[in-house]
Design a protein around this nucleic acid. Structure first.
Lengths: 225, 225
DNA sequence: GGCAGAATATGATATATGTCATATAAATGA
DNA sequence: TCATTTATATGACATATATCATATTCTGCC
């Protein structure tokens, strides 16, 4: 069992507020898990009874809409926590988490987290601020979905992906989403997404290298959103 | 200055967790305010530095989208709190609050609330659960906006309005939104909203009495969403 | 009480986007 | 390595929705 004390990603999450004793307790009760690309971490409606801490890799949080399509609500990466809302609401999770790459995650049972929650104000404040950030972002996205065109949302999403996950040495976006997943983030049909990417490519906004994407004209992309 | 102890709406909000002493302190520092229909309580980007408790009336929380249209993110009614997210994030509010009817609201400064927050675990837990509920709802709406048709969203919204705000003796929806506001809730153009209401009317789903709306065939409306 | 401005209503039309079909390219696995 | 599936791409077309124009009705107000 690895020690949470020495885990570097802890510094990026709410868990940074925990003291030495708490970290030792945390290390004792947590379980680690390797998650292969495409594997489900938890599914909408499930009782998770704890939170996951993402040590490595990226996953998508999706929500099934009544028409049968999945919608990607959020991407969660190294250093972030999963399942906070559900734990606090004391409800089943409302989103499904699926690994986009091979991942390392640690699971901490609810009882433990709630203990920290009660005793460590800074920790609970951190968790709350996280959730508040999610709420603000979600409200923003709701309005985006309602008011912006697909083209605008695509431009915005491409910029977001580069901002958040960076680019490789060849300037391609580091995070590798399928066209289908990209479509499901911006809330459109896969074909529409592919078509718009082609358009963006033709007009020099981006360059498509197979499945990889390079943002070529960031100022213009920014002006679109 | 009215006493918070005797305020009935307190029972419906997170404030129900406060004890007698805390309520007395609350009553001492709060300020009451009458808000006329159409008046702004606070505006996107403003520093509110406290929370509002809605004693009577309903307001809309809107967000301005880059295309210049307002989108109604949420309706807030008697017994609910306003500005919680902003207070916890320690950021300006990200939404604008406008009264839909004459309202009575009380304002409590941040310093006071944060005091309760630190000392009263049940209170902070209540606030968090509220925010978590908002987040869940917001995620759901985001997916709705992205995946459902305007028709489906209209049906869903009408049902929501009746569920949440009830109906008058003549069966008309109690809450009175303009067509423009209804459109801004479901995320569509005013004309489209009006047109669909006409369609719903013709097909017997609803009945339009001037500006008032009666839900006639709730099972069918439910099947649509 | 009547007038100005707003809200509601409806038609005509444009446009964005979804859907279905099909082709090609890439990935997977026996 | 080849075959089978899956992902990407593009065309043709259907349709939902926005936009613009114009009536009509309602509402506040002097």
């Amino acid at each position: 069992m690895s020690k949470c004390e020495q885990c570097i990603v802890r510094e990026f999450s709410s868990l940074k507020a925990l003291n030495k004793d708490e970290l030792i307790k945390l290390a004792e009760c947590k379980t680690s898990r390797l998650v292969k690309k495409g594997e489900i971490i938890f599914e909408e409606g499930e009782n998770v009874n704890g939170i996951f801490c993402v040590k490595d890799g990226v996953c998508k949080l999706t929500k099934l809409s009544p028409n049968g399509k999945d919608h990607i609500v959020k991407l969660v990466t190294k250093g972030e926590l999963l399942g906070q809302r559900s734990m606090i609401s004391d409800e089943p999770v409302n989103l499904t988490a699926v690994a986009l790459e091979d991942m390392q995650v640690c699971f901490v049972p609810k009882s433990e987290i709630m203990g920290f929650f009660d005793k460590n104000n800074q920790f609970s404040m951190n968790v709350m601020k996280n959730i508040c950030g999610d709420l603000k972002e979600s409200d923003k996205q709701m309005v985006n979905m309602a008011q912006k065109t697909v083209k605008e949302r695509l431009a915005e999403t491409l910029l977001y992906l580069q901002d958040t996950f960076g680019k490789n040495e060849d300037d391609t976006l580091k995070i590798q989403l399928t066209r289908d997943e990209l479509a499901s983030m911006i809330g459109t049909a896969t074909e529409s997404c592919i078509r718009l990417l082609s358009d963006f490519n033709k007009s020099g906004l981006i360059e498509i290298k197979g499945k990889k994407i390079i943002l070529k004209d960031i100022p213009k992309l920014k002006k679109m959103v």
